[in-house]
Amino acid sequence: MSALKLKKGSTSHSAYNLRPTFSDVIEKHTLAVLVENEPGVLARVIGLFAGRGYNIESLTVAEVDHQGHLSRITIVTTGTPQVIEQIKAQLGRIVSVHEVHDLTVEGPSVERELAMFKVAGQGDKRVEALRLADIFRANVVDSTLETFIFEITGAPEKIDAFADLMRPLGLTEVARTGVAALPRGD
């Protein structure tokens, strides 16, 4: 674990540093869940959200420690503070889950997402799309005479903004990876 330099999760084993709960405000939280990389582990996590009626706004998963057989699941979820605390506690009691981190409360973190946009158009619209892509530091990864595929990384809000701009310029298809996130510093 030390190789990954992760702090022990705030909710995996303790209920003392819980924030005040039972408020009606809906909050958005980014959770990093380190799990045993074994068959069915993603189903356990998703099944928990489905079975208990929690929201998933975005979910990404990949193995991050081959030797330790650990995968990292990054989940963006929404709920009242009480629901968020429940989600973390429920995740923490899945046997295959090693650690649960609430990046939203554990200090500053960086959130990034990768997206690809296919934009079809001709003439001014095509030029404008290319110009805006440049401003957003999106790369052209494929091009035909009538289409571009842009690749863009950034915070989800930036990608949303880019999508809004591309829509009138001939946006035909979008693929997004979902959020990956890490806490800043150590």
Partner: peptide
């Protein structure tokens, strides 16, 4: 013994896991 039982339904003033 189960942290998920704490504050699930009723807010605990003194939670002990």
């Amino acid at each position: 013994i189960d942290p998920s039982s704490i504050n699930k339904v009723i807010k605990a003033d003194i939670p002990i896991v």
